[in-house]
Design a protein around this nucleic acid. Structure first.
Length: 501
RNA sequence: GAAGGUGUAGCUCAGCUGGUAGAGCAGCGGCCUUUUAAGCCGUUGGUCGGGAGUUCGAUUCUCCCCACCUUCACCA
């Protein structure tokens, strides 16, 4: 603060500081300690009849200011909303009115006054006392709104996406719908917790820093521990640790946490994102499909009061049950080709026919995955379970009870995007070792996302894991669907950005 | 990683084929005691993302760099 160069500040900021100095000369502390409130803006607006002509104390940030000589109107905003205040010289006295004259949009104030309705019909607090609580020194974007024919028209919206993400605190202040999105996000997560807690699942925490990463196909972030002098990875998934807890005797555990994947950024991917993983003993993937449907329905009802939403112009209904579409049937349906039990070369030809680009080192599973990604997934607009994946794609999933080529796995899709991934967990340690070894082969062949062999995890399986169903659900994407957000950055407070130079 | 787009006052934007910048809002001064995108009068404010080049002269043309957006690639 002492290093601040006043001469570098622009005119507006200089004016703010001049006012700050003036206020201090007048004996006003511009950064106070606390303030007792008796009501929020919203409760006064909603319960006007019981507040009319009563005294209230409220606090909030000045968001608009209309001075008219010896009287002023302003809107102040607290977490619940905005309410107008009316400050008159003859009511607050000369000193207070002079202090009020030095206030700006962006200042945080406390007001004691009487609730009434103006001639124009707006519920307003007629101030008896106004107290500055925190001075604004950097001007806020001024966003003005007008209601015409019931529609809200916004003038000079704070719309620069880069600034909105970098300075989210401003975005939250001036774009009211942004605050709503994040409140909805919170409610979604808390509804999910409630659903899981009510069913007796135990919320747990497992390591973020891991000597071996696993549980998903992804490139990790690497870091280093000084004292141990060892490389550690930021987790790409919780899976292998949560399954160790099932081995340890818990019968239902879940974790809601950040995972980190060192990959591209676009509107559905952020390097750190929130994942919910759940493992339930003695259950299989059929149980997990039922659970996903039911849990998402529960969340929709709790948060939105309905299961149908509009996402980017598309009507989507989460109402259970969702279709359960075996992968090879889906491929038949959307490409006309039957790719079941085809050789790698046959799959290559199919990819070529379908104009799906593939890499030379890919095995049959990976080629299939690419075909599904391009030809099937975009069609899955309404919530759908795509199930029964080829075994090569799922090194941690259990073989299908009726088909050795497949695993008991499903992913759920909405608007062409995956929101969950689950399977009957592989608990045969011998099979698991072979799958890991196959992954190692892929890794050597150049697949950077192939998984690493985790001896301790196999050791755990050798101790014995009950049959278990496991689930991973991307929270950010779920939030996107329920808030109609086009970009993952709209549902993450502080998305990863390059630093400003 | 590739292609395209954008970057001008605190905010939202305008600036045609090069002549060193404008508007509205905000700010500042004045008038105004039920206004509300308050109004009226006056006024301040910009290394035109950064750097280099071409030119008598660059916000405008060229090149490099930076950030963001979109699409693709990659990725759940």
């Amino acid at each position: 603060m002492s290093e601040e160069h006043i001469e570098d500040l622009n005119e507006v900021m200089k004016a703010r500081r001049a006012k700050l100095a003036k206020l201090q000369e007048m004996g006003v502390n511009p950064f106070t300690y606390s303030f007792d409130r008796s009501a929020s803006a919203l409760t006064i607006l909603e319960q006007f009849e019981s507040f009319e002509n009563k005294t209230v104390t409220i606090a909030g940030r000045i968001m608009s200011l209309r001075r008219m000589g010896k009287a002023s109107f302003a809107h102040i905003m607290d977490v619940s909303g905005r309410i107008q205040i009316y400050v008159r010289l003859d009511r607050v006295g000369e000193k207070s009115f002079a202090v009020f004259g030095l206030l700006d949009i962006g200042d945080i104030i406390g007001v004691k006054g009487t609730v009434f309705k103006t001639h124009a019909g707006e519920i307003t607090v007629l101030a008896d006392e106004v107290e500055l609580l925190s001075k604004n020194l950097h001007p806020l974007p001024i966003v003005k709104e007008r209601v015409e024919d019931g529609r809200k028209i916004t003038y000079d919206a704070f719309a620069d996406t880069e600034l909105r993400y970098r300075q989210r605190y401003i975005d939250l202040l001036v774009n009211s719908q942004v605050k709503e999105i994040f409140i909805t996000r919170s409610r979604i997560i808390s509804a999910m917790r409630r659903y899981l807690d009510e069913r007796g699942y135990l919320e747990v925490e497992t390591p973020v820093l891991q000597p071996l990463y696993g549980g998903a196909a992804a490139r990790p972030f690497t870091t280093h521990h000084n004292t141990l002098d060892m490389t550690l990875y930021l987790r790409i998934a919780d899976e292998l640790y949560l399954k160790r807890l099932i081995v340890g005797g818990y019968e239902g555990v879940y974790e809601i946490s950040k995972d980190f994947r060192n990959e591209g950024i676009d509107r559905t991917h952020n390097p750190e994102f929130t994942m919910m993983e759940l493992y339930v003993a003695y259950k299989d993937y059929h149980f997990m499909m039922d659970l996903v449907e039911e849990m998402v329905n529960f969340i929709c009802q709790e948060v939105l009061g309905t299961t149908s939403v509009t996402y980017q112009g598309q009507e989507i209904d989460f109402k259970a049950p969702w279709p359960r579409l075996p992968m090879f049937e889906a491929i038949r349906q959307y490409t006309g080709l039957d790719l079941y039990a085809k050789s790698r070369d046959e799959l290559r030809r199919a990819a070529k026919t379908l104009q799906v680009e593939i890499e030379s080192f890919w095995d049959g599973g990976k080629i299939l995955d690419e075909i599904v990604k391009n030809k099937v997934e975009p069609n899955l607009v309404q919530p759908t379970f795509l199930c029964d994946y080829p075994v090569e794609l799922s090194p941690l999933a259990k073989r299908h009870r009726n088909d050795d080529r497949l695993v008991e796995r499903f992913e759920s899709f909405v608007a062409g995007r995956e929101i969950s991934n689950a399977f009957s967990e592989l608990n045969d340690p011998i099979d698991q070792r072979q799958r890991f070894e196959q992954q190692m082969t892929l890794k050597e062949a150049g697949d950077e996302e192939a998984q690493m062999l985790d001896e301790d995890f196999i050791h755990a399986l050798e101790i014995g894991m009950p049959p278990t169903a496991g689930l991973g659900m991307g929270i950010d994407r779920l939030v996107m669907f329920l808030t109609d957000a086009a970009s993952i950055r709209d549902v993450i407070f502080f998305p990863t950005m390059r630093p400003e130079k």
